[in-house]
Nucleic acid binder design. Sequence first.
RNA 1: GCGCCCGUAGCUCAACGGGACAGAGCAACGGACUUCUAAUCCGUAGGUUGUGGGUUCGAUUCCCGCCGGGCGCGCCA
Length: 554
Amino acid sequence: MSYLVLESLKEKIGEALSLLSPSSGQIDFVVEPTREKRHGDFATNAAFLLARTLQRPPREVAQDLKRLLEPQLLGVARVTVAGGGFINFTLEDAFLLELLGRVLVEDERFGEVDIGKGKKVQVEFVSVNPTGPLHVGHGKCAAFGDAVARILKKAGFQVEKEYYINDAGKQIELLGISLEVRFRQLLGENVDIPEGGYRGEYLVDIAQELLEERGAGILELPVEERTKLFREYAVEKILAEIRRDLDDFRVFFDVWFSERSLYENGEVEYVLSLLREKGYTYEQDGALWLRTTLWGDDKDRVLIRENGAPTYFASDIAYHWNKWKRGFARVIDIWGADHHGYIPRMHAAMKALGLPEDFLEIFIVQFVTLLRGGQPERMSTRQGEFVPLRSLIEEVGVDAARYYFLMRDPETHLEFDVEEAKRQSMDNPVYYVQYAHARIVSVFREAKKRDLSWVSFQEALRFGFENEDERNLAKAIVYFPEVVKQSALLRQPYLLCNYLHDLAGSFHSFYNLHRILDPENVPRMSFRLALCRLTQIVLRNALELLGISVPESM
RNA sequence: GCGCCCGUAGCUCAACGGGACAGAGCAACGGACUUCUAAUCCGUAGGUUGUGGGUUCGAUUCCCGCCGGGCGCGCCA
């Protein structure tokens, strides 16, 4: 993977550092693209860091490093010391062009970086209780989890996407009861949805369907059978709805895992006995507790209630034990912000089970504040007030919705004014990126229409750069694998959004400033068409990682 | 009260696990289409990074105190 320019630079700098100071092998320097071109192509802060340990002025250390590096670096035209001690590198054009040649060969595989080494990773996300349709906040989780999974796959992990169905417990009981109330109301009975029940309109529709399907007679069934029927019917219908929403949002899961199954095959029981055996549990007030405080939780947590029913926590521990048994090297859980208080106890439970420190990785997705005409809209399924994901998709489209959710760090709050997104949909940043791709396709379409002929892309690269705009575009293109690597390591799709916006910007500038189709100058035309093709490859590969469509025309 | 997230241009956000002059997009202003898609480009303007300290060659970034906003703190899930 030597086209990871930064990687090879880093390696050489590391070697130079250890020559200057053998003891300081673990200096955590960075190599980054420069913000300004007068600083060259890439720069490192290594000298500043070494200066500290050596107790010498950074500039001096930088000079020493430069002397060591200069003869070492192939493909680097210039090494300079600037500022207080930055070391700047300027790539040779020939090297850059060689890298471009490799991109053409790699094509759809370009951007693959093998940091995963085939390790099995699971990403579990959305996992909404089947008690109501998906809302906008879930959409953010869905877009994030799906993009992370795609990125990890590109980075060499073996990835599975999973949805955990909370089809057990009190909330589900309440759902069944709420449906029965709606059902009875349809038959004219004067009954009310109980405290804490689900009041959303969607249950009225489902009750209507059930009535048409099974008739009023089901109310005559024995209590046990009747509540089971209402409960299961509600879960089934709502889950089907959730699946349909996710399909339309282009989010597909490999596994749908039922919480209830953990009870049915005795795994909850088993994990509880495991924890008992290890001596991390105790009885108090008629309940069974886990000593999560041993690992930093605020207080111990209940596993089995006074009434004998296991808590959600208990089944969740069993669930993660199950994940471990399935052979994942690591599992990534993506939760809504309302669950963040749950993190310490879950990590504690993993430690109680003796699982590796880094087995479970949890991401918290902060809420989306939906604004509609300046008015904030609260989202709570239990209150029955929420903005469905579906209606957002219908208003702004899948591509725009996904891009908006992904363009920021999910752990920060996101403000999303629907009215504004609707009104300004033509200025949406996602179109800026997609438009670059559509333009490229259009150039080739035009070239064919005019029956132009040009030198093959690979051959054309030897004509080299004519201006800085072409060169900037080339730099952006070869930087792609580094972005994939970073966003995979940090699990941050938004780095790709930023990168895409940059790349599209470099292309739009290039396009506006230089004519591509010019039969009078075939070498130049050929070289520029090669750049177009290269840009197209990267735009396509990157958009696919985000689950955003790649339009041929707009 | 305790814990987590956040506070950067008028608005929405960047700044790549301390670095060069804090950058984009909207909104504002001025230019560029008889020529490959103007959903674009080129340019101008816009800032005491909430606030007060501290750590050091250097702080938007790390630490502490305050101010303001969001979310949690169940034998719910």
